[in-house]
Design a protein around this nucleic acid. Sequence first.
DNA 1: TCAAAAGTGTTTCCCCTACACCCATGG
DNA 2: CCATGGGTGTAGGGGAAACACTTTTGA
Lengths: 233, 233
Amino acid sequence: MGEAMSTPAIPRPAVATDIVLFTIRDDSLQLLLIRRNLEPFKGEWALPGGFVREDESLEETATRELREETGVTDVYLEQLYTFGDPDRDPRFRVITVVYYALVNAMDRDVVAGTDADEAQWYGLDALPPLAFDHGRIVDYALQRLRYKLEYAPVAFQLLPRRFTLTDLQTVYERILGRDLDKRNFRRKILGLGFLKATDTYRREGAHRPARLYEFVEERFEEAAGGGVIFQFN
Amino acid sequence: MGEAMSTPAIPRPAVATDIVLFTIRDDSLQLLLIRRNLEPFKGEWALPGGFVREDESLEETATRELREETGVTDVYLEQLYTFGDPDRDPRFRVITVVYYALVNAMDRDVVAGTDADEAQWYGLDALPPLAFDHGRIVDYALQRLRYKLEYAPVAFQLLPRRFTLTDLQTVYERILGRDLDKRNFRRKILGLGFLKATDTYRREGAHRPARLYEFVEERFEEAAGGGVIFQFN
DNA sequence: TCAAAAGTGTTTCCCCTACACCCATGG
DNA sequence: CCATGGGTGTAGGGGAAACACTTTTGA
């Protein structure tokens, strides 16, 4: 801020945060949208979000809005990008700091917030038209998610605490959009050394039960040290 | 923005952009600072930047401030992060969208802007105390630069159009902070296939002249396609 | 006994790494 | 002729990639 203090009138745009909330549901990558019940774009689908309050940080805003509008707490929350084109909101200038978050949707109840009629998960291949520039924001978030997947342990955020290796592989496949080799995947992910095999199994359907694993944060921190690469096939 | 339009009074923080401008000078990684001539932090060093105007995008603000305060144009400019803690500016709330840029400093004249007494390059190992939270911002930018260096062709932004392989290797070494093996570096970077060997040489000093190379953007785009990794040694 | 998903090894090949000497030039 | 940085090759090891069959279960 090398700004001149004597600047006659500093423009005061509104500042908001929006959140792109990803999950894996029904074996596909989905995100949470709300239906607006106020103008502009009344009745259209949009990302959850809201204006930054006087005394809260940007991340606090994102956390609060996420809680208020979707009931989701305790998530991996990361700043994505700030969109600030002058005309992105038809009312007045709104600069939005976008965060994205990953949750394991199992049993997360979706609740409509005060400024939405409805909240709903949408598969990425079946998104409705979005309000404002939210379509562009989603594109950007997806790109970042794909990217991030390859060098950070984000996949575990999309799964419950215990999961099978097939669950994990599916997360990678759904986000990357391509199939992976089962044997190579398992060898590599286990070789990284931060998965703990439990002695419990998931049995479902007419086939061999699958062993459950846990992601061990501490092991990741030390064994990883930064330069781990999650690249498969 | 699922914000309610009927919200009584939307807070209107000021929004600024700051720019972290890196270069390689005197064989070391440096960045550009200005000395503030206005309160607060009058007389202290800070990043160049300024408030966003009514009708310009965030990137336009960054581009304009960069030009106005340093005379630098046509640079690789990328949004870094948005810092918005309520108390980061002692006057009133200022949310700053930070960009970073890389320039080849050769012959870039540094000019003091209107709200600065002085503009100067500083080596990263000899930075003065910085105003606001700019110290933290610089740390963040450096981290990102190191990171980015390994998966994007940013090193070329720090060099003139034609450069020697030793020049290039030095850029990597200065940013990463460690030495690289000459033979491996050359084999790898040439193997990537987007450097064009020219038939001109730089001759200087009492030793064999060094061949000059050019970075060919188009070759990078196609040959790379996304998954290139610039990891050495 | 059948269907369906879990689980498991080996070989090949390529890339990363480590390492030391000759080349061209100016003074 | 000597000091200085430019420029080059190879051998070994490790990880990525390709590839198919056996195991366990419920119905």
